[in-house]
Amino acid sequence: MDAASIHSRLREKFGDKILSAEASVKDPFLVVDAAAIRDICAYLRDAEGLQFDVLTNQSGVDYREQGYIEVVYHLYSYAHRHYAVLKARVPRDAPVLPSVVTVWKAANWLEREIYDLLGVDFTGHPDLRRLLMPEDWVGYPLRKDFVEPEEYHGISTSRESLLR
């Protein structure tokens, strides 16, 4: 099933929850309503003919100028060998998004990573802790306005000369 027909099926099912579609780029994607992401994903996984059984990748991108953080879902179906890309946009100052852990367990760590590095809060996530950074780290390193702190627990993060 190609991107256009996936789009039309989703449009049929969810109507205006599908905000926009871009078909003429490298990877055609759909921008969907952030609040409906879990329902859409559950539908994509279970619906006959779609069966997106894998979440291959989930990435967060911070669009500082546009004022939102985009969470990108790359879906793939082993049964039908087709792709789908969903994008959910959440405001930078209050990034809240339903978790899709109940749909794909792979989302567990992927969402923890996005929470860790971009500060997106996934509601309904069973274990939303920092993954890569220390538990007491302040700030979200992959945000564009992140400034590295001068020191961490008294350890300086900068060196006077790189050759020392």
Binding site: V25, K26, D27, F29, T56, N57, V61, H74, Y76, V85
Partner: peptide
């Protein structure tokens, strides 16, 4: 590269 995003596997 032109604006946009891409994924490969």
């Amino acid at each position: 590269p032109q604006e946009g995003d891409a994924q490969i596997r």
